[in-house]
Amino acid sequence: MLTTSVIIILREVLEISLMISVMLVISHKREMNLRWFMFSSLGGGIGALAYASSIRIISNSLDGIGQEVTDASIQIVTYILTAFLVGILLNPELANKKNNRLLTLTMSACVLSAITREGYEIVIYIGGFSSDPDTLLPVAIGSIIGTGIGMSIAAIFYYALANLRKQRSIQVCVYVLILVAAGLLLQASLLLTQADLLPSQDAIWDTSQLVSEYSISGQMLYALVGYEATPTPTQAGIYIGGIVFLIWVGRYEKYKHDNS
């Protein structure tokens, strides 16, 4: 029970740690007041509790695919927010602007949706044991250990990115954001396939021999950039398209400035 809960909680925490580390680095480099982060993580916590407490209603809605549609929608919205964020970050006119409200709002929304989405599974998992005192203790200890490991890894990401020079740091943050956001889009497409809203197809390739989804490296890659060993052509197309679109957004912002 203990090891299982360490792994489950660690996985969920890792899934949001890269995004949150990147947001905090941007916040630090752009000299933003950290209040936005407090409010948005609090909002995310409330969102996770609200989602978890209405999980039965959500699950049973839309002929039993409500959960997939809701999760995929949150992921797609986070992707769109990331696109705005990339645009704002690479726009040279906004680079030195203090108190950029658009930037604060976009990052807050990203953090809020990330915590809601990953948090509700944690709430459901731990909540399920609350009625059973025998398992509650090992699950609670496991969850604390899992959260601790996850946050330590997040701290390593944070310092690795924060120690770079400002321009370079923001650049690397954008690359990481692009990978994380495309991973979210890929996960959304998996959920929509599971709900039969996207076509089910044979896998376009199989990299499970190379990196198995059962392995630790596979789990890490899944949590961080949405690794999938056997994507369908549609899913691979969505992933690659998702990356290309965000790169285009970044290029466009730069190009527009260079030619104005």
Partner: peptide, 18 residues
Amino acid sequence: YELNREKVIPGKSKATVF
């Protein structure tokens, strides 16, 4: 992992997976 499916199912309830 083989089917590429994952879904949380609350206690005492039902879920649909294609």
